[in-house]
């Protein structure tokens, strides 16, 4: 299934700002599990776009608007085709072989340590969580298949967090969501990540979109960004776990950016001279079931 995505962000300032630099992590990931047939970024005011691939493998597009302005609009238009129809389509290594597999993977690719060692307010150390949660956290032993432990974890999460739109902000610390007993998709992903990291298994935060089911996909459906986690599975590579919906990420999931937590994978980051904005950014995201008329990104930029 191919999707056309439009992701528009409008920033409005009560007083004009200038020397405005912006970095965007909006171009969907282009890898074995997803093909980007085309994508482009538009901005208003317009600026010369530069780009690079960051250390997590995300494509970053950036630009600056120097003269004073009171409004900045950025828009991504992309034509993507998620390919993972069946997320179970792999044979995980037997539990006995996993320890050695992880040892080798971490040795050959030291940057994976970012996904095991990172701790922050959003993905804190497990000690901080156990102090707040009065029930046992799911454990993982070397005798248990990793996938089984991960499913147990996903089923356990709703006993700690109830999904409640607006319960938390973008960068709310996990501990606050836990105390409130409610959160949104980031909090579900963060809790999942926090527990998996305590097992020493590489896990990363994913920012992206979840397309509506085919029967509900209108000509143009309005959606919000979604957050889930990807775990490095011996024999399976990076597999997406959506703790909010207790699902493995299939071809309705469109990953855009990954990182240690939501800061690394933030869709838009900016710096400007002038007063702080009075209003929150206004974001419109639409997904439709048909891609057309876009140029594919240069081959060498594809990860």
């Amino acid at each position: 299934m191919r999707y056309q995505i439009e992701h528009e962000t409008i920033l409005e300032f009560p007083h004009s700002v200038r020397e405005h630099h912006t970095e965007l992590r909006l171009t969907p990931r282009n890898d074995l599990n997803q093909r980007v047939h085309g994508s482009r970024i538009e901005t208003d005011p317009s600026g010369k776009l530069g780009h690079y691939i960051d250390h997590f493998g995300n494509r970053v597009d950036y630009f600056c608007v120097i003269p004073p302005h009171t409004r900045l609009v950025t828009r991504l238009i992309a034509d993507v085709e998620p390919l993972r129809e069946n997320p179970f389509d792999f044979s995980p290594l037997p539990p006995g072989e996993c320890k050695e597999w992880f040892r080798k993977a971490l040795k050959n690719e030291p940057s994976l340590h970012d996904y095991t060692l990172h701790r922050s307010g959003e993905t804190p150390s497990i000690v901080k969580l156990t102090a707040e949660i009065d029930r046992a956290l799911p454990r993982h032993t070397q005798e248990t298949p990793l996938m089984d432990s991960l499913f147990t974890l996903m089923e356990w999460i709703p006993s700690v967090l109830v999904y409640q739109p607006g319960a938390t902000e973008v960068h709310t610390e996990l501990i606050h969501a836990i105390k409130a007993g409610a959160g949104v998709c980031q909090d579900f992903a963060n809790l999942f990540i926090t527990v998996v990291r305590s097992w020493g298994v590489p896990v990363r935060y994913v920012m992206g979109y979840q397309a509506p089911e085919l029967s509900l996909l209108e000509k143009s459906s309005e959606v919000a960004t979604h957050a889930w986690a990807e775990v490095l599975i011996p024999g399976g590579g990076w597999v997406g776990f959506d703790a909010t919906h207790n699902l493995l990420a299939n071809d309705r999931y469109i990953p855009v950016a990954v990182g240690r937590d939501s800061y690394d994978a933030a869709p838009q980051r900016g710096s400007f001279k002038g007063d702080e904005p009075g209003k929150k950014p206004v974001v419109h995201i639409t997904i439709s079931g048909k891609g057309a008329g876009l140029q594919a990104p240069d081959a060498e930029e594809q990860e």
Partner: peptide, 14 residues
């Protein structure tokens, strides 16, 4: 130097 086991990766990544 990390891959060759001379420097522990934790030292760098933390």
């Amino acid at each position: 130097i990390i891959k060759d086991g001379v420097i522990p990766p934790e030292l760098i990544y933390q």
